[in-house]
C-alpha cells in the first residue's frame, strides 16, 4: 500500500459504509471492496448482532471508524463517557484510523444531531485545537477530521473555511478526511470556487476521501448521501487523487440505501481514477 501522508496511514483502496441492510450479504459473500467504514456510534453500545457482524467483517477487511457525535466545536465539556466508549471500540476492532467532523452537534446538553457549522474565528480555532489535542492524547492516535457541508456562514467569521481547517490541522497536528462532495456543496452554497478551495488543502495531512451524492435544490445543495456521485464531484475527485498521490476513498450512501450491487458499482467508479495514478507512477 502507498503511504504519502505524514502520518504513515496507508491507502486502503476503495471502501463503502457498513450498513445494517447489507450485513448478511457482506458476511456471506465477502464482496470485492477494499475496506469498510462504520459510523462509530452505531457500534459503541451494542453487544448484539451488529458487533458480531463487525467482528466478522474486521477479520476480512480493514475498518475505519467515522463518528458523528464528538462535537469537537461545542462549548459543552468533552463527554468522557462517550470518548471512553469510542476508544474501547477502536481498540477492540483494531481500526485503521478514526475521526469525526469539523462541527458541533449541540450545546447545553441539547443534541441537535446535526453537523452544525463552526464560526471560523481565532477563538473557535484555539478552542477546537485544544479539544483535538486532548482527545488525541487520550486516544493515543491522530484524529482524522472531516470538512463539513455547510448551509450558512456567520457574520462573525474571520477567515475562509479551508484556511481555518488548515490551521486547525497544523496546530492540533491532526489528519484530514477531505470530503470532496462536501467541498462541492459548501462552495456551491457560498458562491466559492471549489478549485480555489482545494488549492489550499494541506495535502500531506489528507488520509482519506469521501464521495457522496447530494440534493441540488437550485438555490442550494444539501449533503443527503442518497444518490450517485455527480459528474462535477467525480471530476474534483480525479484532481484530488492526482494531488494526493492516492488516498483511501469511501462512497457514502445512507438515504434510500440501494441494493449491494448498485453500491458496489458506484464504488467501482472510483477505481479508474486510481488506476490512472498507478499507470502514471509505473
Amino acid at each position: 500500500m502507498d503511504v504519502s501522508n505524514r502520518f504513515g496511514l496507508p491507502d486502503l483502496g476503495v471502501g463503502v459504509g457498513l450498513r445494517v441492510p447489507h450485513f448478511q450479504h457482506v458476511v456471506e459473500r465477502k464482496p470485492a471492496v477494499d475496506w469498510f467504514e462504520i459510523i462509530s456510534e452505531n457500534f459503541m453500545d451494542t453487544e448484539g448482532r451488529p458487533m458480531r457482524v463487525l467482528e466478522q467483517v474486521r477479520r476480512d477487511y480493514p475498518v475505519v471508524m467515522h463518528g458523528v457525535a464528538m462535537s469537537i466545536g461545542s462549548t459543552d465539556p468533552l463527554d468522557w463517557d462517550y470518548l471512553k466508549r469510542l476508544k474501547a471500540l477502536a481498540d477492540r476492532i483494531d481500526v485503521a484510523w478514526m475521526g469525526d467532523h469539523v462541527c458541533w452537534t449541540g450545546v447545553g446538553s441539547h443534541n441537535g444531531h446535526d453537523l452544525y457549522p463552526v464560526p471560523y474565528t481565532e477563538a473557535s480555532l484555539r478552542h477546537v485545537v485544544e479539544r483535538i489535542k486532548t482527545i488525541q492524547d487520550f486516544l493515543g492516535r491522530p484524529l482524522v477530521m472531516e470538512n463539513p457541508s455547510t448551509y450558512l456562514t456567520f457574520s462573525s467569521d474571520e477567515m475562509p473555511e479551508i484556511e481555518w481547517i488548515g490551521r486547525m490541522a497544523e496546530d492540533a497536528d491532526c489528519a484530514l478526511l477531505l470530503d470532496v462532495n462536501n467541498v462541492y456543496v459548501t462552495c456551491r452554497n457560498h458562491g466559492l470556487d471549489p478549485m480555489a478551495y482545494l488549492e489550499q488543502v494541506p495535502w500531506d495531512r489528507v488520509v482519506q476521501n469521501h464521495l457522496a451524492g447530494h440534493t441540488d435544490n437550485g438555490t442550494h445543495c444539501v449533503d443527503t448521501h442518497d444518490d450517485h456521485v455527480c459528474d462535477a464531484v467525480w471530476a474534483l475527485y480525479g484532481w484530488v487523487q492526482q494531488r494526493t498521490g492516492g488516498v483511501a476513498t469511501l462512497i457514502e450512501w445512507d438515504g434510500d440505501l440501494p441494493e449491494w450491487d448498485l453500491l458496489q458499482a458506484e464504488a467501482d467508479k472510483a477505481r479508474p481514477y486510481r488506476e490512472q495514478l498507478e499507470a502514471r507512477d509505473a
Binding site: 461545542s74 462549548t75 450545546v107 441539547h110 441537535g112 464560526p119 478552542h127
Partner: peptide
C-alpha cells in the same frame, strides 16, 4: 471556554430547534 462561541451556539440551536 470562548464566551462568544458559547453564545453563538446557544442562539443558533435555539433558532433551528424552535
Amino acid at each position: 471556554m470562548p464566551e462568544g462561541l458559547r453564545a453563538l451556539e446557544t442562539w443558533m440551536l435555539r433558532i433551528v430547534t424552535h
